[in-house]
């Protein structure tokens, strides 16, 4: 009898634990009504691009390489099967950027994609480790022409006013009266101390970390409140995969879109120089080593695609879930996705 009971407990342990955890977690985190409105928004996004003859594509979620960006943490897994009995390491993509650029280099023309992106260590009111991203590329556009198109899309979905455009430097100076592009580390540290960030500033040697702190905590709440706001001409040290500006090498042809305390999109006049791209990947990996982070394999397929000639283009990634949050006036990302990470 006792063994039978022990057997019962062991067999049904996962089930019993499940009951103890939370019997309501099977339910979606978003209401069915919100999910219906979500479906409609996504249909409208697709219609927007069909009308403009932008082709919808699908690229792999799993790749042998991933983003080297020191602030992006990829999930990794392993393929085991034919030809890879010992296992092939794979990364869930933090965005479809590299694969889409390979399509551009192969002559796809204008393309868009709505896909899942995966980022480890990101969870909160505006973050879920798995989220939906709208990414598109426009050969022949510069980043200002692309901003026009994003603006049209946002107005179409959110029925809001036209976006304003401010340079990173002007937005920063309007709040702090300090030029962020030319400020010294000491000046930025002092600014952080004034705003109650002395605990972060005291040991920080990286100007960009302090700039990102001041920008996201203090500047962001002052912009894009009534209408969307494009911030452009980011510091060259935060160029990511954007071209460096031809007239002012201290800034990059990179922009972000903000609306109602939400960072909605990030775009570039895309870097097309294979050597420069490889250098940035390698510099990221060196930084990773010095920070004690694992290196990420460089995507040589992307480098080779750039070397073979990717058309001059502008591209942007937009957070679909956040756009839907704004459209439905929801405060948390879990209110607009079927199952957040806690329920996944």
């Amino acid at each position: 009898m006792r063994t039978a009971f022990a057997y019962f407990l062991l067999t049904f342990k996962p089930f019993l634990q499940g009951l103890l955890v939370n019997a309501t977690l099977w339910q979606p985190s978003a209401s069915i009504q919100s999910l219906k409105m979500r479906a409609e928004i996504i249909r409208n996004i697709r219609a927007f691009f069909y009308k403009r003859n932008v082709i919808e594509v699908e690229t792999p979620s799993l790749s042998q390489a991933s983003a080297t960006d020191i602030h992006l943490m990829s999930f990794s897994t392993e393929f085991i099967g034919p030809h890879f009995s010992k296992g092939l390491p794979l990364y869930l993509q933090t965005s479809p950027e590299y694969a889409m650029k390979r399509l551009l280099a192969a002559g796809s023309g204008a393309i868009f994609q709505i896909s899942k992106a995966f980022r480890n260590e990101e969870s909160g009111k505006h973050h879920n480790p798995e989220f939906s991203m709208l990414e598109w590329y426009r050969p022949g556009f510069d980043h200002f022409a692309l901003m026009d198109e994003i603006d049209s899309l946002i107005q179409c979905i959110l029925k809001c006013e036209r976006a304003v455009r401010i340079t990173y430097q002007n937005a920063f100076e309007a709040v702090f009266n300090i030029d962020p592009i030319n400020a010294s580390l000491t000046e930025l540290k002092k600014l952080c101390e004034i705003h109650g960030f002395e605990n972060i500033a005291k040991d920080e040697e990286d100007k960009d970390t302090l700039l990102q702190l001041l920008f996201s905590m203090i500047v962001e709440p002052t912009i894009g409140q009534d209408r969307p706001c494009f911030i452009y001409d980011f510091p060259a040290s935060q160029a990511a995969l954007a071209k460096i500006n031809q007239e002012n090498p201290k800034v990059a042809d990179r922009f972000e879109l903000y609306f109602k305390n939400m960072e909605l999109a990030n775009g570039f006049n895309e870097l097309t120089d294979a050597n420069e791209q490889l250098k940035r990947f390698e510099s990221d990996n060196q930084k990773r080593t010095s920070m004690g982070l694992a290196q990420v394999p460089t995507d040589h397929n992307l480098i080779n695609a750039l070397a073979s000639g990717m058309p001059e283009c502008a591209g942007v990634a937009l957070g679909v879930d956040r756009l839907i949050m704004l459209a439905l006036q929801k405060k948390q990302i879990k209110d607009v996705i079927s199952f957040d990470i806690e329920r996944a």
Partner: peptide, 27 residues
């Protein structure tokens, strides 16, 4: 969690000091 798409992540924490009872925000 506050994290720019390209950039450093931060934690904005609301906390209560247990002795003074003061509530404040710290990043």
């Amino acid at each position: 969690m506050v994290k720019p798409g390209k950039g450093q992540a931060f934690n904005r924490v609301k906390l209560r000091k247990l002795i003074s009872g003061k509530v404040l925000e710290k990043t």
